[in-house]
Computed example of a mutant assay.
Amino acid sequence: MSRVVLVHGIAQQLRGAQTLLAHWYPALRDGIDLAGGPQLSSSEVDMAFYGDVFRPTGHRGLGIPELDAGDVEEGLERELLLRWSEAVAREEGRTDGQQAVARMRTSDTVQRALNVLSRSAFFAGLSERLMIYSARQLRRYFTEPELRARIQDRLSCAVTGRTEVIVAHSLGSVVAYETLCAHPEWPDLTLVTLGSPLGVPRLVFDRLLPQPSAGSGRWPAPVSRWTNIADRGDAVALVKELGPRFGSRVNDLVVHNGAKAHDVRPYLTASVTGQAITAGLNRSSSSG
């Protein structure tokens, strides 16, 4: 019966709900403490875990199939890797990387993008196959309806009558948004999105359900307040402000997470994140 439900992003297939909670909870508490918020016990926080649905079977090593540039599918996977590489090159001041990606063609373009990403501080330590596999998870979410429904069901099962705040990171923000839209009967909730790709045109925004109309996304009915937080250097959150897409009620804020701009922990420890979560918890307490 958790007051706060967390929703993770891509590349968590080798972890589990409790593993991620142990990873997220101290940072969550730090952010809330900075904001002067309530003492939130671990029993009041839950993780809507879905990473296992992406975990492949029958492979050696890390459980991720051997992938290279030639395995990248045309369309969403390819475009996502190119957009990531362009954002990284732009943020790190590497115009040569942007120009080289733009000049080259087909699988060469993808390989160049992977080279740019592998040398960046943002994707430091990630192998090519893991970067490709991460892009593939986003593609599968949008192109496999049964998998999409299974993932959303994980969040649906985690939300109870006691839930007050949903904190969603990366792809988890897409899961949270679509699930909230599908459940208008849920009670008053606060949504906090971190490093969200929700506003990225073509790749994410235009694939959302319910479908956007006239360039605007539907407001999720159960949400009374929505705070969106992004680091300017976060290559996943290519569009930093969600207000222009989802309405002026979205409170868009900017933080600085250091070298690991997309890492969930510096997002959670930021005082503005703690303030947004605390506001959701206090709102429930004051109304009770």
Rank of each mutant, 00 (worst) to 15 (best):
L81G: 07
L189I: 01
I277R: 00
P65D: 15
N257G: 09
T273L: 01
S285K: 09
R83T: 09
F142Y: 03
G93W: 12
E185C: 07
R136N: 06
L114R: 06
S127M: 09
P212N: 08
R154L: 03
R105W: 14
R162D: 14
L238V: 08
R119D: 13
V174H: 00
H59G: 10
A102V: 11
L191E: 02
G9S: 10
N251R: 10
Y141K: 02
V72D: 15
I64P: 05
R90K: 14
G161D: 15
V7W: 02
D33P: 01
F49C: 01
H59W: 15
A113V: 05
G31H: 05
S134C: 11
S196W: 02
H8G: 03
V101P: 00
P26L: 03
R162Q: 13
L198S: 04
D68S: 12
T269D: 05
G195K: 04
A261T: 13
R83D: 14
H8S: 06
S287M: 10
Q152G: 14
I64N: 02
L155R: 01
P197A: 09
G37V: 04
L194S: 07
P266R: 10
T163H: 02
P222W: 00
L62M: 15
S224L: 03
H23V: 07
T143V: 09
R136W: 08
A69F: 10
E74S: 12
R60I: 13
A235T: 08
A176N: 02
P145A: 11
V5A: 03
F54M: 05
S216W: 15
G247F: 04
E66D: 13
Q275C: 05
S216H: 12
V7S: 01
L189G: 00
L130F: 12
Q13P: 06
L76I: 13
H183A: 11
C181S: 13
P56A: 13
V159R: 02
L67M: 08
E74K: 11
V175A: 07
L238K: 03
T179P: 03
G161S: 11
T163A: 05
T109N: 11
W84M: 03
A259M: 08
L117V: 08
H8Q: 12
I151R: 00
V236Y: 13
R129Q: 15
T19L: 09
V4T: 05
R112G: 14
G288P: 09
A35Y: 00
F246N: 01
V4P: 00
A27M: 02
I64Q: 00
G37C: 04
L281H: 08
S2V: 09
L209P: 03
R207E: 12
L238Q: 15
T273S: 06
L180M: 07
R112L: 15
S42C: 10
G172F: 06
S286N: 08
E128K: 10
R15Y: 14
R249W: 06
G172L: 07
S118G: 14
V53M: 06
L198G: 05
D71A: 11
W24L: 04
L82P: 06
T106F: 15
S285F: 15
G172S: 15
Q12A: 13
L238A: 12
D252F: 01
T269V: 11
G161Q: 10
T190D: 06
N115W: 09
T106M: 14
S287W: 12
S85P: 11
P222T: 03
L203R: 04
